[in-house]
């Protein structure tokens, strides 16, 4: 697939992989730069960014004082978030009230549901995970919002949690499985569980990691890499043989960041006679949030404690 002159590594993120596995028009749009350009801020994206900061704060210092003020402080600490900060500050007062209300509601949920994490579990937030494959031609790069457990060589001892401020979406399961795959590739032992926590509802979807899960994630990843490589070589879009659901994830691994929760691809609906992208999945394990084991954060922490012991 990759020749001697393949050039820079193909960087595979959650979002790029999802888009590569989406419908042809969606992928071609990616290729021709339809999605590029200036960031388009939305209320869900702003909510996601603010809740991300609050989740990180809660894990790190154990408390949230004033949700909106704390979250804005967190965003302001880094100049690269200045455009988003400016956008939030420029909202009309009614929209600002709406945003504040949602952030405070989700912060309340975090405070009520998330237990304090023992430092000995080595909690890390917004952790980058990288795995380089194919002699450096492919770079799998994901972020997880929370990792707990000491990495070990001979036992699965790490749990990974993605945090989402929007609603459930089948693509979230693909995202957390990709995280499991990257962790399994980079570390001697795979994680024992991957989870998605929904700050809006307090639900936690947990998947114990086994070889079947990793194999399916690897197949999906391989199909996506082939699609991305085709696009990079300028090939016309064609129907993907394998893949998964469309959209709904972010490169940063942060909570939603404004992605659509509906799972529909408006581009496909308009341009492909309404055929949903998700139907391109042939693997036979079409993700379904119904199948995911729903837990509470405390249950996951207890599970992690048991693994550590």
């Amino acid at each position: 697939m990759f020749g001697q002159d393949a050039g820079p590594a193909l960087v595979v993120t959650k979002d790029r992989l999802t888009r590569a596995l989406a419908c042809p028009a969606h992928r071609w749009g990616e290729r021709t730069g339809e999605r590029s350009g200036a960031a388009e801020f939305t209320m869900p994206l702003a909510t996601g960014a603010l809740v991300d900061v609050l989740f990180r704060q809660l894990v790190t210092i154990g408390s949230i004082d004033s949700p909106m003020a704390d979250a804005m402080d967190g965003l302001c600490a880094d100049s690269h978030r200045a455009p988003l900060v400016g956008w939030i500050e420029g909202l009309a007062s009614a929209e600002q009230r709406e945003l504040r209300s949602e952030v405070e509601r989700q912060a309340d949920g975090l405070r009520q549901r998330w237990p304090a994490l023992d430092p000995s579990w080595l909690p890390r937030t917004q952790t980058p995970l990288r795995a380089v494959l194919a002699e450096g031609h492919v770079d799998l790069s994901v972020y997880v919002d929370l990792a707990i457990g000491r990495p070990a060589a001979d036992v699965a001892s790490v749990a990974l949690v993605d945090v989402r401020s929007g609603g459930r979406h089948p693509g979230h399961r693909d995202d957390r499985h990709l995280c499991a795959l990257v962790e399994a590739l980079r570390s001697p032992a795979p994680p024992f569980a991957v989870a998605t926590y929904y700050t809006k509802t307090g639900e936690l979807d947990v998947d114990p990691v086994d070889s079947e899960l990793l194999a399916a994630a690897a197949r999906r990843c391989l199909v996506g890499i082939r699609a991305m490589d085709s696009l990079n070589r300028g090939e016309e879009p064609g129907r993907t043989d394998s893949g998964s659901s469309d959209s709904g994830s972010s490169d940063s691994g942060s909570s939603d960041s404004g992605s659509s929760d509906s799972g529909s691809c408006t581009k496909c609906a308009l341009q492909l006679s309404g055929e949903p992208a998700a139907q391109t999945v042939p693997i036979g394990v079409m993700p379904s949030v119904v199948e995911a084991r729903s837990e509470s954060p405390s249950a996951l922490i207890g599970y992690a404690q048991g693994q550590a012991a």
């Binding site: 900061v53 790190t60 967190g74 600490a77 917004q126």
Partner: peptide
């Protein structure tokens, strides 16, 4: 000079770095 949220981001980054 940072607020609570800004300090938390700094501490989180340092925690990640040191934990590795």
């Amino acid at each position: 000079g940072l607020g609570v949220g800004g300090r938390a981001v700094v501490l989180a980054e340092a925690t990640n770095w040191a934990t590795s």
